[in-house]
Design a protein around this nucleic acid. Structure first.
Lengths: 137, 137
DNA sequence: ATCAGTGCAAAACCTTTGCAATTGT
DNA sequence: ACAATTGCAAAGGTTTTGCACTGAT
């Protein structure tokens, strides 16, 4: 059982463990992202942060998200258009609605290790394209 | 058994069937893409075409690829970075090497219809991220 | 004190569009 | 002739970088 506070603390600890400094900007970014299921882009996150922290620059948001991703605290999601960031790092996949572009998490079920001769698979991503419940009326 | 000429003819016929005109630019683009397994971006295709057809504009390449995709003659592949185009329209997935960024086709095996409550799945895409044979040395 | 991080601004890259001239039908 | 397509050029969006200054350690 991990509360959001636990996750937040874990993320900040991971940053520290990687030799990255803890700044109030990074705390704010982590706070904004942890527990967020909307799969925001860097731009969206930046705009949301502007409300409470108008002095944070886009570059800081962008770079911090990259740092979080490289440390493994967030997943990046490339579905066309801008990269989205996902604080859910459990094994899961994504469904994207072709109407409203919303992104849903899809729990991973069976584990797959398909045979691709010579290719060493590190990660399998699945993208389900279709129409979300709301857009089906 | 489809030869490249057959495929080329099919693609041009599909364009015509969709009410799109057959121009020498489109023929050249189709010729360049059919049978290509390298998953080029619009820019890459444009540069390749420059050699034989220096007067083709990037916009024409870009728009034609979009037209081919909307007619269903090519698949678009979003793996981060620029959109790639794949003339292979059979059901298959992709493996991308995290070292050299090459993209390989992976045949689809079983059919999956995971349950996502309320979500109507049209298409499942899988991306295998890892290291290709050449990059493993 | 040191050195990574920040903010700013600009560059680079990718995608898309408007429009006048051209071309397929 | 008509309408779609082209080439150009520019705009819009996304990602990345350089650099002087700030701030965490």
């Amino acid at each position: 059982m991990h509360s959001l506070e636990d996750i937040r603390a874990d993320v900040l600890a991971s940053l520290k463990a990687a030799g990255l400094k803890e700044t109030w900007q990074r705390r704010a970014i982590v706070d904004e992202l942890v527990g967020d299921e909307s799969h925001p882009t860097a731009q969206e996150l930046y705009e949301r942060l502007q409300v409470e922290h108008p002095s944070i620059s886009f570059a800081t948001v962008y770079n911090t998200l990259g740092a979080l991703a490289s440390v493994g605290c967030v997943q990046t999601v490339s579905l066309g258009g801008a990269t989205r960031f996902d604080p859910n790092i459990s094994a899961h996949h994504h469904a994207i609605c072709e109407v409203c572009e919303c992104v849903l998490d899809v729990p991973a079920t069976r584990r797959e290790r398909p045979e691709i001769p010579g290719f060493e698979v590190r990660l399998v991503e699945k993208v389900f394209r279709g129409t979300c419940a709301a857009c089906r009326e």
